[in-house]
Every structure is written in structure tokens, then in C-alpha cells.
């Protein structure tokens, strides 16, 4: 299915950079091991996992489910401590796997939640978030509650909330996994444009290899649990990338091969 990046004209020309993040900064994870004690014994989610993302780099992490991707992002965001290994990362904001929007807040207030969490007043937080809602194609839905938004809109609000946290690193946990194929393709094009205009260091977790190749500068392939790196593929292609381009398909195939999914 051809989804042309050129058809996504949601964003106007780059807007003056808001003073949201404290300068570029990267992520460096080395030999991280994380083990959970469960009733059925110990589960090692990550085993000597390493990952780097240079400032402004988009790194996709692909791997089978249960291989420790969410655990990795929580470690980057400081929500979990590894059992061993070193973690150095600029402050990171999480976009959780489920959109986790607050059902009692409007789209605008949900987007502004990170500001409110920092103690910004209600009116000022709204004033900051409102123009972004418009840029994200959500104009007219400011007062709509999440239950009335479509899946794609909810993901956009959720992403905006993460963006407005003002952290140099974005940790995106399978942001489009819950969407139907058409909406997902649209949202991938959309995210590519947003990141072109709002450069951040991004760790994008996904189990969609195609999504990884279309969006990322590097694709890190993880093994099944316990998760560790089995391949680190450079994607040196111009943007916007088309999922039907032969170079994209080539890298996709080699990533799938590393996942052990080649025929």
C-alpha cells in the first residue's frame, strides 16, 4: 500500500522553536541486565543489552514481544534501575504503549498534562499547548474528551503530551501498534514530518520492521527474551522514504533475517 509522505501536509512550515528542551543530548546504555523475580522464578528481561542514540538521532528498536523493549524504555526514563550495567541518558519523556490519556480531561488539557505536572498554571499550560494542537491537525477538538477521539487522534494527543514534557529524549513505546494498517501508515508519515521539524533524540520501540526502516536512522534488532542486540543496521536513506522503495525493502529483509523471520 503506497503511503506517500508528500500527502501529509498537516504541518505548516517549521514554527519558531519553543524553548522546550535543554539542548541536544543522547542516550548511552551499556551491558544492562534486568531480572524480575516472579512467582514462577526469575525472568531475565534484558541480558547485557547495549544501546546508544546520538543527539538528534532516531533509533528504532525492534524485537519480538516480551523481549524487554518496554523495560528498556523504562530504564532510559529512569522508571526502573538495571541490576547491572551503566545507564547514561539525558532526561527522557515516555510515550506509553497504551495512550493512557486521562478520560476526564479534554484533548487540550491532556496535551498540556506534562506542563501541569511541572506546576505550570492551567491557563498558561493551555495557551502553550493550543497552537501545537492546531499544528497536529487537532484544531476544533480542543475540548473533546479522549473517548470521542479516533485512535489516530488519541496517539497524536499522546505524542504531543510527551513532546511538551520538554525533554531532549523521546522514548516512544510502540506508538502505533493499536492502530489499523491505514491509519498506522498515515501516522508514520506524520511522525516523520513532526520529527523533521522538531528534532529530538528518539528511541522508537516497535515490532513493525517496516515502520522502523521508514522512520529511523538506525534499526537495532533484539533477540527474544532475554533481550540483547543481534544487529545494528544503519539506514542511510533520504527522507521521506517510501515503504515500496527497493532500499527500504532490502534493509527490511535483512532486519527480518536477524529476527529469524526469513523463509
Amino acid at each position: 500500500m503506497p503511503a506517500k509522505g508528500a500527502t501529509h501536509t498537516i504541518l505548516p512550515a517549521p514554527v519558531k522553536e519553543l524553548d522546550l528542551h535543554q539542548g541536544p543530548a543522547g542516550v548511552c546504555i551499556e551491558n544492562v541486565t534486568r531480572t524480575f523475580a516472579t512467582r514462577r522464578g526469575e525472568v531475565t528481561a534484558l541480558a547485557r543489552m547495549s544501546l546508544t542514540a546520538a543527539a538528534g538521532e532516531i533509533v528504532a528498536v525492534v524485537g519480538p514481544s516480551g523481549c524487554g523493549k518496554t523495560t528498556l524504555l523504562e530504564i532510559i526514563c529512569g522508571l526502573q534501575e538495571p541490576d547491572s550495567g551503566t545507564v547514561r541518558s539525558a532526561p527522557a519523556a515516555l510515550m506509553p504503549q497504551r495512550d493512557l490519556l486521562l478520560p476526564w480531561l479534554s484533548a487540550l488539557d491532556n496535551a498540556a498534562l506534562a506542563l501541569r505536572a511541572r506546576g505550570v498554571g492551567r491557563e498558561q499550560a493551555r495557551a502553550t499547548a493550543a497552537p501545537w494542537l492546531e499544528r497536529f491537525g487537532l484544531a476544533g477538538f480542543e475540548r473533546t474528551r479522549p473517548a470521542q477521539l479516533s485512535g489516530g487522534m488519541r496517539q497524536r494527543v499522546s505524542f504531543l503530551r510527551t513532546l511538551l514534557a520538554g525533554k531532549p529524549v523521546l522514548a516512544l513505546d510502540e506508538p502505533f501498534a493499536s492502530l489499523d494498517a491505514i491509519t498506522r501508515a498515515e501516522m508514520q508519515g506524520w511522525l516523520g514530518q513532526v520529527l523533521a521539524n522538531e528534532p529530538r533524540t528518539v528511541v522508537l520501540v516497535t515490532h513493525d520492521v517496516e515502520e522502523a526502516v521508514v522512520l529511523a536512522d538506525r534499526v537495532v534488532v533484539m533477540s527474544p527474551r532475554p533481550g540483547r542486540v543481534v544487529a545494528d543496521l544503519e539506514v542511510a536513506l533520504d527522507r521521506p522514504r517510501h515503504r515500496t522503495a527497493s532500499e527500504v525493502i532490502e534493509i527490511r529483509e535483512s532486519a527480518l533475517e536477524c529476527l529469524g523471520m526469513d523463509r
Binding site: 519523556a93 515516555l94 497504551r98 493512557l100 486521562l102 498534562l113 505536572a117 506546576g119
Partner: peptide, 21 residues
Amino acid sequence: DQDLMKLMRTFDATRLRSFWH
């Protein structure tokens, strides 16, 4: 939802603000 509380922590929310919001 404890994931929501985790999210609030990545937004640097204090305990009191997580409670309030």
C-alpha cells in the same frame, strides 16, 4: 493505573501533583 503514575513521574510531577491530576 500504575502506568499513569509512572508517566507522571517521567513528567517530573511531585507526589502531590500526581495525586491532584
